[in-house]
Design a protein around this nucleic acid. Structure first.
Lengths: 402, 402
DNA sequence: CAACTTCGATCACTTATTGAACTAAGAAGG
DNA sequence: CCTTCTTAGTTCAATAAGTGATCGAAGTTG
């Protein structure tokens, strides 16, 4: 079993570096790879042959000429392997099949809530995975599973720890269960961590080493990228923002508003027997409901206050805000205003506070990226960072020769 | 100039790994190094010869036998090279000469305040460095200079940025100035960052990947270690805790106390014409002054409140508290109590909040470690972490063979 | 002092990587 | 259309880095 694994493409550092650049920059040629990785053309040529042979990478046509022979574009394979990415959110489950090139091949949303307990949810997760695999058979084999869960996860073991819902969710061996069921490597992490990973890799944080992702869901959580790496914390619980007010608070307050009669638009929406959601408040505010607007404004300011402390403490280059309430422009503007007003001038000098551009799939995308990092051994930033830090010759003098 | 540099010991990854372990574990034998680094005895033998030849490492006697031939103990050289470490604190300047083995060879404290402007302070720094070098001539050559400054520093360029004192301190090219003056590599960083580096390397954070250092000085600042690496932030201003109350606040409040007559012990101390200091408040509290005790208690609680948010957010394995007020047991106890009461159960489950064991020198020590990391190319955690992550054979399967 | 154990050095051999030469494929210009 | 120039990708000999096996040195134990 061992010599087989050692022969893998990603087992050598050079092929990992090549793979990382191919992943990062779609359509590069072998010549580009040589300059980008700093490796010789010879080794690039050999490794690419390996990678193409193993099905990880494929040639996808020719690039435009720059005055000579045209380079052959290389990309991660779209047809010779898939990963499953799943998001276990508080109120639903989302299962996705991705190609190695981060292409979404299949997707399904299952309306099952974490409150219904782990047995049911994980069962649904497995069944949806089966369906996804059946629907994408042409692209097989399945090579890995990445899962994001709303709540703390001990990453090393892939077990949930004390989620703020159903007590049965504590210490569920999600990772081992999936690995055994499907016979491929699985990784499980907190949902917000995976959103941060997605933003770092393909979102707003592509060229940034320190990044904060704020997710306004039922609760407000943060994902941290430090030195280009995900910061999970000692117990994997980093990013918890207990004090802050998410959709749960919003809905609670909105219910009070309806009762007081101060919000005609919300009252109208609920007359049809529907439960209030964060989305309804955002809609009402957009359509001119003053009370809803005020409510959102207060929530945004509260988030901005906490965020301003974190910005001083963590000094990110960029803050990405995701979640339903953040879809409104005013909400983000209010957060910006609060942070810029309260944080240190130095920390906000070049700080950008932006909405996520990855949309609802960002957690699933992050899960796919996590497991792809794992199975390809090609963690992006590790290699691009090495390149940026310059060649060996720039090192400093040392004793003995002074 | 280039082929000369390329021939350096640290230019190869293997010698960097060896050097890192030698630094970490004093008195290891070549055989130990082979098992610890995972390299073969052959390569260890060769590289150690190089390192001893270049003066970085020296043989320091024989280890005890474990049933056969005794190993020769290897340590970083105590006599064939020094680094200068300096701390530019708000109220004084401390210049230290260290051997490669982190041994303090010489130390001087210059009572010059940052408020007197950069020209004067940096001049004093250079003069004290000259004196230190003259006093330790037997251990030369000088191989590098590390400096810690109380205030934000842009690490890449080694320039100060908007310190909260004298405006002249902005954009001072401290690093370049020292490099030119002494002809050796220099590195400049924020004081608290360096304390964190020291704690991570030789202090309480030795075996820990995520660590928070809280320094209670004139202001309260934090140093962050994430994944074993120093987190500096986008502008190098990470760790600022604007809201929190340090000695400056303490002195201010203590002055009010004296005025109100509520603190007989403090009043007595100031009758001799002395200015109030944080130390005086700590002393008074220890000697039973109720008002001082209350004041410290309130400050500790306030710090604890901020810290509890940060603990949830950053989820460190350990928090090290340094600074004069933290010398009192009650102060630390109050911080603990507040944090354990307010933070999430998960984040505090295994959290330790401890006083620094490195004392007043921790910033200087950190400065020495920073520059030694640089000139030896042997960043500790990078190599030990790689070793801990296991051999290649444990990797996961990959497509094409499924 | 003979048998055993561990340490450190040496050397032939394997493996990874480079540099230079070479072939392939296109562009530009007569 | 053919020559010349430029860039892309392959091949191969040379080199650098590291390993494993072997051996002498320096201990311990009975």
């Amino acid at each position: 079993m061992d010599e087989d694994l050692d022969a893998l493409p990603a087992s050598s550092p050079s092929s990992a570096a090549i793979l990382a650049v191919v992943r990062h920059t779609g359509g590069v040629s072998r010549a580009d790879l040589a300059t980008l990785t700093g490796l010789s053309k010879a080794i690039v040529s050999e490794r690419v042959r390996w990678l193409v042979g193993s099905g990880l990478v494929e040639e996808t046509g020719a690039n435009a000429s720059t005055g000579g022979r045209r380079g052959t574009a290389l990309s991660l394979s779209r047809s010779r392997g898939v990963v499953v990415a799943a998001e276990v959110a508080m109120t639903h489950l989302q299962v996705t099949v991705f190609s190695f090139a981060h292409e979404l091949l299949w997707e399904e949303r299952v309306p099952v809530s974490m409150w219904q307990g782990p047995e049911l949810v994980l069962d649904e997760l497995e069944r949806a995975t089966e369906r996804g695999l059946a629907a994408t058979e042409a692209h097989h084999p399945l090579c890995g599973i990445g899962v994001g869960i709303a709540g703390p996860v001990e990453f090393e073991t892939g077990r949930t720890i004390h989620p703020p819902v159903h007590p049965d969710w504590h210490d569920q061996p999600v990772r081992d269960r999936l690995q055994q069921r499907f016979g491929v490597p699985a990784r499980v992490d907190n949902e917000v961590n995976l959103m941060a990973l997605a933003e770092r890799t393909v979102g707003h944080g592509r060229n940034v080493r320190d990044l904060l992702v704020i997710k306004v869901g039922s609760f407000v959580g943060a994902g941290l990228i430090s030195n280009g790496q995900l910061h999970r914390g000692a117990q994997g619980s980093a990013g918890s923002l207990v004090t802050s007010q998410g959709s749960a608070y919003l809905v609670e307050q909105a219910t009070l508003l309806v009762g007081s009669g101060r919000s005609p638009l919300l009252a109208e929406a609920t007359r049809e027997g529907q439960e209030i959601t964060a989305r309804m408040v955002v809609d009402a505010a957009r359509r001119g409901d003053e009370a809803s607007r005020e409510l959102l404004d207060k929530a945004a300011e509260s988030i901005g206050q906490v965020l301003s402390v974190l910005v001083d403490f963590f000094n990110p280059a960029i803050v990405v805000v995701a979640g339903r309430p953040a879809d409104g422009n005013d909400f983000l503007a209010r957060i910006r205003e609060t942070v810029y007003g309260r944080s240190l001038a130095l920390a906000t000098r070049d700080l950008r506070i932006v909405p996520s551009e990855l949309g609802d799939e960002s957690a699933s995308l992050g899960a796919a990226i996590m497991i792809l990092d794992e199975i390809t051994g090609a963690d992006l930033l590790t290699h691009t960072a090495r390149r940026l830090s310059g060649p060996r010759g720039t090192q400093q003098p040392v004793p003995g020769r002074h």
